[in-house]
Computed example of a mutant assay.
Amino acid sequence: MSTRSDRPVFRFAPSPNGLLHLGHALSALLNHDMAKAAGGRFLLRIEDIDANRCTPEFEAAIFRDLGWLGLSWESPVRRQSEHLDTYAAALTRLTEMGLVYPAFMTRGEVKARVATFEADGRAWPRDPDGSPLYPKDDRHRSETERHDLIDSGLRHAYRLNMSEALKIIDRPLSWQETGDGKKGPIAADPAAWGDVILSRSDAPSSYHLSVTIDDAAQGVTHIVRGLDLYSATAVHRLLQELLGLPEPVYHHHRLIRDEAGQKLSKSEGSTGIASLRDQGLLPDDLRRLVGL
């Protein structure tokens, strides 16, 4: 599955579900500049696995914005929508290892369960992003019950049985970090994320699974991305170990925030690359705006 290179390989991997903003500009420029400084390769990947939100128009805008910034990348560009069979094969492999189960609870049902639990002052466990961990009900269903529910047409996702996965690894995990946070070997704690989703009824692969597969398939050696994904690296390291994939070096960079201190959103047109270009700014101006 993996294609390794003698040269360092960097990648910028946006989703075409909105217009790129200054935060994307920082990540793309860092990847491009670091690849150039290391004598490496710079790849562009289109993470379009969410067919309900990703559009050809937004993809065209990505190419237009990055080209205007002066970036160039290798062809062909990898699109997740063209590799669904690869993600399905990885999911099957994890399932055959006894690490995957169908999960039937909706977000509303999980929210109600958490609210009831916390009504008397108890705290439901949450992941590093603050979302409640998925209840364990579905993990403990019998195979017969699972098949009956699936045969009934009930929508479901597939989740990783985190406790069983960690039993297989049975040793501490870590990653090598060179970014804006703590550097050096970082202890990975995938258990903090609970039973993460690997596939949903409306998306054949989760971000965690597809990004791990993609990076290995493209031989990516250096993953440069925002600090908002710092903790999620623990899940990616676990999947790499379970699937026998190589371990890249990670560099998590600072985030560009709005005046209220919030991470930028694709819905904020004022910080969009296209909007700033239309206002007459030049690529060098954007470099200065993001601190480069």
Rank of each mutant, 00 (worst) to 15 (best):
D6A: 10
R7P: 00
R7A: 11
R11Q: 05
P16M: 03
P16F: 01
G18P: 01
L26H: 03
S27Q: 07
L30P: 00
L30A: 06
L30G: 00
M34L: 10
M34H: 01
A35W: 00
K36E: 10
K36F: 00
A37P: 00
A38D: 04
L44C: 03
D48Y: 01
D48A: 02
I49R: 00
I49L: 15
I49K: 00
D50W: 02
D50T: 03
N52W: 07
C54Q: 01
T55P: 05
T55S: 15
E57K: 11
E59A: 11
G70H: 09
S75K: 12
Q80V: 08
L84I: 15
Y87S: 09
A88T: 14
A90F: 06
A90N: 05
L94N: 04
E96Q: 15
E96C: 06
M97W: 07
G98E: 09
L99Y: 08
V100G: 04
P102L: 08
K111H: 14
V114I: 09
T116Y: 05
E118G: 12
A119G: 11
D120W: 07
G121T: 10
G121H: 11
A123T: 15
R126P: 08
D127V: 09
G130I: 05
L133V: 06
D138G: 10
R139Y: 11
R146L: 08
H147M: 13
H147Y: 05
I150M: 15
D151F: 05
L154I: 11
R155N: 12
R155H: 12
H156A: 02
S163K: 12
E164T: 02
I169L: 12
R171W: 08
R171I: 09
L173Y: 04
W175Q: 08
Q176W: 12
Q176D: 14
E177H: 15
T178S: 14
G179R: 01
G181L: 07
K183H: 08
P185Q: 13
D195K: 04
D202H: 12
A203S: 13
S206C: 06
S206R: 01
Y207P: 03
L209S: 03
D214R: 11
A217M: 14
Q218Y: 04
G219W: 02
I223N: 05
G226E: 06
L229A: 12
V235L: 12
H236V: 09
H236M: 13
R237K: 08
R237V: 11
L239W: 06
Q240L: 14
E241Q: 15
E241W: 10
L245P: 05
P246T: 09
E247A: 15
E247W: 07
P248A: 13
P248C: 15
V249K: 14
V249S: 11
Y250V: 06
H251N: 12
R257L: 15
E259K: 13
G261E: 09
Q262I: 00
S265W: 04
S265K: 05
S265H: 03
E268S: 14
E268I: 05
S270G: 02
T271L: 07
I273F: 03
A274Q: 13
A274P: 02
S275Q: 08
S275D: 08
R277I: 04
R277G: 02
L282G: 00
L286S: 00
R288Y: 09
